[in-house]
């Protein structure tokens, strides 16, 4: 039971963070843009809870807040980064989608981290280092040329990488099924990469399958690919009103909110306690970030080439 409480707390932290962020954006209190992961939190937490955070590298994409929070549990440095504050992870250089913390790297180009993740995995193999690379990607990235090149490279060089596809079925506003030939499993099979799948956006199903896939990669020093069907309850980015989704579809997935599923296994009293606690942490993180200092512009001169 204690374990479920902790899982719910991690999931709720991400949800609460993204919701608070949406509020700040809607009030015009933050510049720039953001890509929320409401509805997809279970994948981040189930995966990150089951890797070796000291040894493994994790690459992510524009929709990276969930991954970051699952790793760090630290909403303050992320909120500060998004707000462009000096205490942010990168002193405000990168904001929402350009984050680096030790072995965790994200970037804003769809699919662009995937070749790099393969290189990281190859380097681990060449250096005889323990651990693997966990590479998150979305369904939009599956039609990028270099992602397909990378699947081939990972397979021919036998590198320890686990591709984790968070398939929320929409590449921004485009329904991926309408623009994707065949299906992902057939593609992955053709590269001789083992394919794992979860369909229900459920923490425990994802955890179980993830552990199998992870174990395969680690023990075989070979790539594996895992597809998690999921749903994004929020827009693609801050201004997206989801006009391209049907109400039926939204309602169907809302009924299957993965956070509610876990919440049902916790007493109402405990759930409320967790929620209140997390809300306070997030609220304070945003307030502290908001009132903290902006970076000194001269930091830009550090570590530049020309």
């Amino acid at each position: 039971m204690k374990n479920k409480n902790n899982i719910y707390k991690s999931l709720y932290l991400i949800r609460s963070f993204e919701q608070t962020l949406e509020t700040y954006f809607s009030k015009g209190q933050i510049r720039g843009t953001t890509h929320g992961c409401i509805g997809q939190e279970v994948i981040a937490v189930a995966a990150i809870n089951n890797i070796n955070i000291e040894q493994d590298w994790i690459t992510s994409n524009h929709r990276c807040h969930g991954h970051f929070l699952a790793i760090t549990n630290d909403p303050l440095v992320l909120a500060a980064e998004i707000m462009g504050k000096n205490i942010g992870v990168l002193n405000g250089r990168g904001a929402s989608q350009h984050i680096r913390l030790k072995h965790f790297l994200t970037n804003g180009i769809t699919g662009g981290m995937i070749p790099i993740a393969c290189g990281l995995a190859l380097s681990k193999k060449l250096k005889n280092e323990p651990g693997i690379v966990l590479a998150f990607l979305g369904d939009g990235a599956m039609n990028e040329g270099y992602v397909m090149e990378s699947l081939n490279l990972a397979s021919i060089y036998h590198v320890p990488i686990l591709f984790l596809l968070e398939n929320n079925m929409y590449a921004m506003s485009t329904r991926s099924a309408n623009v994707t030939a065949g299906n992902y499993q057939k593609r992955i099979d053709s590269y001789d990469i083992p394919y794992f799948e979860t369909k229900d956006n459920d923490y425990f199903t994802i955890k179980k399958t993830f552990q199998e896939a992870y174990k395969f990669v680690k023990s075989q020093t070979k790539p594996a690919f895992m597809e998690c069907k999921t749903f994004r309850f929020c827009g693609h980015s801050k201004s997206d009103k989801k006009e391209y989704m049907s109400q039926q579809e939204i309602q169907k997935w809302n009924l299957e909110d993965p956070l509610l599923k876990i919440r049902k296994d916790i007493s109402e009293e405990e759930a409320i306690k967790i929620e209140e606690e997390v809300k306070t942490i997030v609220k304070e993180a945003f307030q502290t970030a908001s009132s903290s200092s902006p970076p000194d512009p001269t930091i830009i001169l550090k570590h530049v080439a020309n």
Partner: peptide, 23 residues
């Protein structure tokens, strides 16, 4: 020596990943 398929985007990125881990 790593001889590659004709995937310039892919193996350039792969090289970048190797470099990130100290190679």
């Amino acid at each position: 020596i790593i001889q590659t398929p004709m995937s310039e985007q892919g193996f350039t990125g792969m090289g970048i990943g190797m470099a990130l881990n100290g190679l």
